[in-house]
Design a protein around this nucleic acid. Structure first.
Ligand SMILES: [Zn+2]
Ligand SMILES: [Zn+2]
Ligand SMILES: [Zn+2]
Ligand SMILES: [Zn+2]
Lengths: 153, 153
DNA sequence: GTACTCATGATACTCGGTCTCAGTTGCAAC
DNA sequence: GTTGCAACTGAGACCGAGTATCATGAGTAC
């Protein structure tokens, strides 16, 4: 896919700036993550570097999430997916067939949500939107290959 | 709280209509659920009826979710919460302090989301919105008592 | 090079949830 | 009412995702 996503150098730089060590395992994982511009699971990452300890893979993912460099997308079913974040407030479009994740920004929906009657709910402190799609290549190929279909009542 | 929520008779009737047996453990759990109009965790439900087997509690929750009578709300962190569903398409406002869940319907946001440029993402098949709030009673009491704060980038 | 600290990997553990299976029970048919 | 049987239950094993522990290893500052 031609989606832009920050390469491993981006992660390397940011993690270094934040005062964390750029160790061998971390750099290897950053490079692996850069190969998944549309998101990955912890499992997929682990498969790329079987020699790296399980705990280290999860610790590294957590580090990136905590630094805001990677978004954790909790699907309604199954393991969460992670995707490099472009920065700023955004939401995600998730393909229900292949799991590909794309960021999107949509200011209209932000302002509309801003008009929600806070008084019926309390103080609004945030929101989260996920849009479920069948992505371009899944529509083209017409084959279901990946995740379970999502029920969206 | 004065929120209306269908009582246990509602669940009883619907589950019966769907051709499932109204057994003792199920009826007991329906009654327990009716006591949580703003949502519950599997754990909380289990505590109400320690004599009911773990598996049965989870099986019953799953049955209700599958029948669309209960919504599963997967918080970004921690155990999912469940809440009796009012029916139809709706979203949830979740209190980040006490975990209370309220349904809301907001047709404006539906139509705005409908205008999302499908071509940049593929075929839109659904969406999910969660609004994070501090609910009335948590704002009043000013005390943090429950869930961890939610980061909403 | 040394020291200090952070990071790693092996492994045990937690937690939410499911599977298995023998025993029980709701419920419809008689 | 009794009977028959599939649906259901509870105990406990199991699972998958993730975290805690802890002795060892490797960046970084000097
Ligand atoms: Zn993101
Ligand atoms: Zn937004
Ligand atoms: Zn709901
Ligand atoms: Zn909606």
């Amino acid at each position: 896919m031609s989606t832009w996503a920050p390469g491993s150098l981006f992660l390397e730089e940011r993690v270094g700036q934040a005062g964390h060590r750029l160790t061998g395992p971390r750099l290897a994982l950053f490079r692996a993550i850069a190969r998944y511009p549309e998101g990955f699971t912890a499992e997929e990452l682990r498969d790329q570097h079987p020699s790296i300890g399980r705990a280290t893979v999860y610790r590294t993912i957590r580090l990136l999430v905590d630094l805001g460099l990677v978004c954790k997308i909790a699907l309604p079913e199954g393991a969460p997916r992670y995707v490099v974040a472009g920065g700023g407030h955004h939401h995600h479009a998730v393909c229900i067939e292949c799991g590909a994740v794309k960021e999107f920004r949509y200011s209209t929906v932000e302002s509309v949500l801003g008009e929600l009657r806070a008084d019926v709910m309390g103080q609004i402190v945030g929101h989260r939107i996920e849009v479920y799609v069948r992505c371009g290549s899944c529509v083209d190929q017409g084959g279901r290959t990946g995740l379970a279909p999502v029920s969206t009542p």
